[in-house]
Amino acid sequence: KLATQLLVDLAEGCHTHHFNSLLDIIEKVMARSLSPPPELEERDVAAYSASLEDVKTAVLGLLVILQTKLYTLPASHATRVYEMLVSHIQLHYKHSYTLPIASSIRLQAFDFLLLLRADSLHRLGLPNKDGVVRFSPYCVCDYMEPERGSEKKTSGPLSPPTGPPGPAPAGPAVRLGSVPYSLLFRVLLQCLKQESDWKVLKLVLGRLPESLRYKVLIFTSPCSVDQLCSALCSMLSGPKTLERLRGAPEGFSRTDLHLAVVPVLTALISYHNYLDKTKQREMVYCLEQGLIHRCASQCVVALSICSVEMPDIIIKALPVLVVKLTHISATASMAVPLLEFLSTLARLPHLYRNFAAEQYASVFAISLPYTNPSKFNQYIVCLAHHVIAMWFIRCRLPFRKDFVPFITKGLRSNVLLSFDDTPEKDSFRARSTSLNERPKSLRIARPPKQGLNNSPPVKEFKESSAAEAFRCRSISVSEHVVRSRIQTSLTSASLGSADENSVAQADDSLKN
């Protein structure tokens, strides 16, 4: 292990032709098999893994070397290190390495390699500790012929580059190093199909959405987006994914797998022009299946994007999809995704031109529960009313008269009656009930004795009459309010007539 670390330190600071010789020695160290011998017992696995620490030291050392060589000349050094790393990870899946030390190597290698970024000039870069990406002036992410390196360097940008540029090249004859992302992409596909350690798979799935944002990485080298989509959909639809995973937390289920895969599918929607129609349908189907899991909100957001990006695919699945959405409970976490999906859909009339009455009724059935102001915040309630109004205007004229009683009944049950079921009123009724029952229970537990009763009969009569009056008032709060309003209006009217009579009498006395 110490000798391997010494080789790594020497290679990191070497800029001459001896660098390749040092890498040859490190490569021989990495070539050791990580498969346990067949006769190895389970209690000896930890000791055997400790004997392979030099392999881990070599791989982690290459990660440090690549981070240094990416910004220094010659660029061919970075290319050689990158290829060695990718080849080593491929061996893991070729020979099915399952030892804990092998999983640790893959975890740290993917953690580093999935941080690679590219700008519009195809320059590769890595983020620093502050998250700012520094791009290399010597390494690009696409394949290029050595003699055409300078031509590639002087080509115009596709868009303004992001991030601070690296140091300027030493001279005009500098050759750019090619670090094609397709090599890593193929290893990522192998990981999605064969990885057995949940920690490694979770890391890859968590980092892929951010990497897919940099389309330069994908399009400048032959990366098959179709295969990526197929691998992701197979993970969700195939039963073998959960069987092969180990190291998963207790209670791990298909729902947890959906939570990890759906963000990658959402990021892949922007590549729909490069996906086969069959793959697009598979993607939409997987998102529909996710509606029954805890990732339902993410799936609804993804389907909203699909309705804009892939209208030809979503239009066929939309009638059944809208009916499925009615089975989702009206909760605060689902309110905004569902209502925004319906609001977006209302502005795309070509998608729902074939809707029948059942689909329009489903839209109103989804939106009406969110009009309850005692359960949802003001934004959700306003958005629900907006969706109902928009869809009522957009639905066909023959359907409107049939939906009017349905909508008014839903609004009455969710908006008007919600004020009668407020917690304050319920607590008031509970308190009044307890007050009504309390005197009775006290009389049963403690019967009054005439000799020891010091309270006069008049006081008892007053208290009983007050309790009886309170019971009468607490029967119905709404009736009490109505009666008080009527009494107030009658009182004001009587006072007004009394004032008029007094004024008339005063005038008569003055005349006399």
Score class of each variant (00 low, 15 high):
Ser120Asn: 06
Ser159Thr: 10
Leu73Glu: 10
Gln90Gly: 07
Leu208Met: 07
Leu232Pro: 01
Lys152Gly: 12
Ala231Glu: 12
Leu63Lys: 12
Pro157Glu: 13
Glu195Gln: 00
Leu236Ser: 03
Leu52His: 08
Ile105Trp: 00
Pro137Asp: 11
Ser51Cys: 11
Arg186His: 11
Leu201Gly: 00
Lys153Ala: 14
Pro161Ile: 14
Leu63Asn: 08
Pro100Trp: 01
Pro74Lys: 02
Met84Cys: 06
Lys193Ile: 09
Ala248Lys: 13
Pro160Gly: 12
Gly206Cys: 08
Ser211Glu: 03
Pro161Arg: 14
Leu176Glu: 08
Leu85Ala: 04
Glu151Cys: 12
Val133Ser: 06
Ala248Glu: 05
Gly61Lys: 02
Ser51Asn: 09
Pro137Cys: 05
Ser104Arg: 06
Cys191Ala: 07
Ala173Asn: 13
Thr57Met: 05
Val187Arg: 01
Gly125Ser: 03
Leu126Ile: 13
Leu212Met: 05
Arg244Asp: 04
Lys69Met: 01
Ser104Val: 11
Ala173Arg: 14
Glu53Phe: 03
Leu73Gly: 15
Pro74Met: 02
Ser155Thr: 13
Phe252Asn: 02
Lys153Cys: 13
Leu188Asp: 00
Gly247Ala: 07
Ser224Val: 05
Ala78Ser: 06
Pro74Leu: 01
Tyr93Leu: 00
Leu188Cys: 06
Gln194Arg: 10
Leu85Pro: 00
Val179Glu: 02
Gly247His: 13
Leu183Met: 13
Pro165Met: 12
Glu147Asn: 10
Ser234Val: 08
Ala50Glu: 12
His77Arg: 03
Gln67Met: 03
Leu212Gly: 01
Leu208Cys: 01
Leu217Pro: 03
Ser96Tyr: 11
Tyr143Gln: 10
Cys139Val: 12
Glu145Cys: 07
Gln194Met: 13
Gly247Ser: 08
Ser136Thr: 07
Leu208Ala: 01
Ser104His: 10
His92Glu: 01
Asp130Pro: 03
Leu99Ile: 06
Leu201Gln: 01
Arg80His: 04
Ser159Glu: 14
Lys69Glu: 01
Ala102Met: 02
Ala231Thr: 08
Ala58Trp: 00
Thr154Ile: 09
Ser76His: 10
Pro137His: 11
Cys229Thr: 07
Phe135Gln: 02
His122Ala: 04
Pro222Val: 04
Leu62Ala: 07
Gly238Tyr: 09
Lys240Asp: 14
Ser237Gln: 11
Leu60Trp: 09
Val179Lys: 02
Leu228Tyr: 01
Gln90Tyr: 08
Ser120Arg: 15
Tyr138Lys: 02
Phe135Cys: 03
Leu205Gly: 00
Leu183Phe: 09
Ala102Thr: 04
Arg207Val: 04
Asn128Val: 06
Glu83Lys: 12
Phe219Pro: 02
Ser49Met: 09
Gln90Cys: 11
Leu158Met: 10
Phe252Met: 10
Ser120Asp: 07
Tyr138Arg: 03
Leu70Met: 08
Pro209Val: 12
Val204Gly: 00
Leu188Tyr: 04
Cys223Lys: 03
Met235Ser: 02
Glu147Tyr: 11
Thr154Glu: 13
Leu73Val: 09
His77Ala: 04
Glu145Phe: 09
Thr98Lys: 06
Glu83Pro: 01
Lys152Glu: 13
Tyr93Glu: 01
Thr57Trp: 03
Thr72Lys: 08
Leu176Asp: 12
Arg80Val: 04
Leu85Glu: 00
Leu201Trp: 01
Leu184Ala: 09
Thr72Gln: 14
Tyr138Leu: 04
Val179Leu: 12
Leu236Glu: 01
Gln67Glu: 08
Arg175Gly: 12
Asp226Ala: 07
Cys191Lys: 00
Leu217Arg: 02
Lys94Met: 08
Gly131Glu: 04
Leu70Val: 05
Lys215Val: 02
Lys202Gln: 10
Tyr181Ala: 03
Ile218Glu: 02
Tyr93Trp: 00
Ala78Arg: 01
Leu121Asp: 07
Gly177Met: 05
Asp197Val: 02
Arg207His: 08
Ser120Met: 10
Leu184Pro: 03
Gly149Leu: 10
His122Phe: 03
Gly251Ala: 07
Asp54Gly: 02
Leu228Phe: 05
Tyr138Asp: 02
Glu83Ala: 11
Thr154Met: 11
Arg207Tyr: 04
Tyr181Gly: 03
Gly238His: 11
His95Ser: 09
Leu60Asp: 14
Ala173Ile: 11
Arg175Ser: 11
Val81Leu: 06
Pro249Met: 05
Phe135Tyr: 11
Gln227Ala: 10
Pro161Leu: 14
Arg80Thr: 04
Thr79Pro: 07
Gly251Phe: 04
Phe185Lys: 01
Val133Ile: 13
Val216Lys: 08
Ala78Phe: 06
His95Thr: 03
Asp226Ser: 07
Tyr143Leu: 10
Leu208Trp: 01
Gly163Lys: 08
Arg186Asn: 11
Cys229Ala: 09
Tyr143Ile: 12
Asp226Met: 03
Ser155Glu: 11
Gln90Phe: 08
Leu66Thr: 02
Phe252Trp: 06
Ile89Pro: 00
Pro161Val: 13
Leu62Glu: 01
Lys215Glu: 02
Leu99Asn: 06
